[in-house]
Design a binder for these strands. Sequence first.
DNA 1: CGAGCCATTGGTATAATATAACACCTCATC
DNA 2: GATGAGGTGTTATATTATACCAATGGCTCG
Lengths: 164, 164
Amino acid sequence: MKHAATNEAFPDAGHDHGECISAALAAAEDTCHREGLRLTPIRRRVLELVWQNHRPVGAYDLLDQLSRDGKRAMPPTVYRALEFLQSAGLVHRIATLNAFVGCSHPRHVHQCQFLICSDCRTVVELESEQIGRSLKREAAALGFQVRAQNVELTGLCPECHSTH
Amino acid sequence: MKHAATNEAFPDAGHDHGECISAALAAAEDTCHREGLRLTPIRRRVLELVWQNHRPVGAYDLLDQLSRDGKRAMPPTVYRALEFLQSAGLVHRIATLNAFVGCSHPRHVHQCQFLICSDCRTVVELESEQIGRSLKREAAALGFQVRAQNVELTGLCPECHSTH
DNA sequence: CGAGCCATTGGTATAATATAACACCTCATC
DNA sequence: GATGAGGTGTTATATTATACCAATGGCTCG
């Protein structure tokens, strides 16, 4: 899941995205095997479609694309696959967009923060332990016990920022 | 907007919620007057309904309650009021719940983090400058320019935490 | 083997959330 | 008294998500 020559977090236009996809699928096989989960054809296909780029995809977009595969699919099919993939940590839901992206760090549990470019819609997963801990700490100071974090930052990615 | 004798952030069951509501409405009058915005009867009423408690309310719940006022309301009415209130900083949208809460600190612009109790559904607005800055800083390190932050932490509030 | 069980999928229907588009009204201003 | 902007009423529809039931397929355990 290398992006161009630099080690920028943001995928540049020229990166080999096929590599992103195959890495994601390999990691998924891996994870599911390790955890005794079943990466069935539908689930695998949905994951592949989610990874078609680094932008969040809506469930109904996925549905259309699945249908184009030949067998017309119904909403529950997609939502079930997405639910599985989410619970397996392979896909994240972007709540502010009602859409889904592939998880960039599927091989380990993590708390992450999303950087969402409002221009090109690219999403990058920031993985700051420090922020995760700060949030927990500040919440704990009020007696609140955090179970799940959803952090979504909207703004401009380097590319879109520089061209405006 | 005092909550009981202690200075806990979490409203306890016994707090005088009428005071929360009237404080919120007063602050709204204030803000709108200062900024040249019109707090029309509908908008005021929606704000009042949003403040009926410290839990997020869905747009269609608000709609029902508005309708109970006598004049049956249609979705755009509520959504328009909510949009106005959000842009005036008087109401926040909780994306993970598709629901709305009154803003606890309407008198100044701020970045906030939501603590959402998954048990009693109470939402508290944490207002940590430090976290806001950390997020910006870490994003900036990747060349990302943050424009909006949406931070939602789900877990157990002190009350629900202690009774389980 | 075969009975029972559970996870997965297929499918219908519907729920829940949100917006587009257009008509009308009111008020401020020119 | 025309004009224009902001607000509201209303109809229709788009978008996102789930409830529910039937059928299938693989699995274990006796």
